[in-house]
Design a protein around this nucleic acid. Structure first.
Lengths: 146, 146
DNA sequence: CTGCATGCAAACCGTTTGCATCCCC
DNA sequence: GGGGATGCAAACGGTTTGCATGCAG
């Protein structure tokens, strides 16, 4: 009699375990940011492993691959639908505590012949830190005028 | 007396003129797609010129650089704020004829300490063409079962 | 004539992939 | 022991950049 085939495609390795832990602690990290974090605990891990596992986890729905602006993809441990805000200066991405707008998909469905699967709202703006920096730079300049 | 400095940073070259014309005709093209179009009319143009000018035009607000999902950036001749829908299969990006949700920025402002500059809603789904393709592939398979 | 704009090609950066080795089941 | 997972490094695709030349003002 054959052993039942392994239906779960996910073998829980040390690398995957640490990746998930660090992803949960980090704030929408890029693959490289996650790599740096994980490397502090598993110093021989390769970037390829990070990318391969992120891809697998996203495909299986364990994590979310964020299709946000900017040149690098970001990853999120929170898989319930939610919106994001991205700082136009430093690129930081944060959750925005807003209810998903239920009507928006219905409205969009009425407008197109697409079979709509999902949606994402991304706000852009200056994060508090960058606002402070800009203000300080401004004061600096005023002072130099005196 | 000095001549007034050229305030418009934009020298209207043949390349820029053709780029803008083709961008207006194309449907949210990537830089490469625009390059192919422009090359039919100016066959010695280089990709570098395309990227450089797209960047300049976006910076000066003449066109829009779309921060949509996918690995390539896309560009849009329509600069008024509007939303997009992207096919999850073929990557096609189209405008969606929906009013910009005015309340959404106010709501987001209340929720964060960010200085919010803008927002973008991106829907994902299957475009009609890809839906047809999928349906046909399905029929094909059913037929092979008979 | 001057300096911005161009064509060309090399460099760059993020990501993917091939392969030998490792290790979990 | 076997097959999936890993580390490593090379390849890849999209974008940016340096430089000599061209061309608009």
């Amino acid at each position: 009699m054959n052993a039942a085939p392994d239906l779960n495609p996910f073998r829980p390795t040390k690398q995957r375990q640490v990746m998930l832990e660090e992803l949960a602690k980090a704030n929408h990290p890029t693959a490289c940011e996650l790599y740096e974090r994980v490397r502090l605990r598993l110093h021989r891990i390769g970037l390829g492993t990070i990318y391969r596992n992120l891809e697998l986890m996203a495909a299986s729905g364990i994590i979310l691959k964020l299709e946000v602006g900017g040149s690098q993809k970001r990853y999120d441990a929170q898989t319930e639908p939610h919106y994001h805000i991205r700082c136009s200066r430093c690129g930081l991405v944060e959750n925005i505590d807003m209810h998903v707008i239920q009507n928006v998909i219905a409205a969009a469905s009425r407008k197109t012949a697409y079979n709509i699967i999902g949606h994402h709202i991304e706000f852009t703006g200056e994060c508090p830190k960058c606002q402070r920096k800009a203000r300080n730079a401004c004061l600096e300049q005023e002072r130099s005028f005196v």
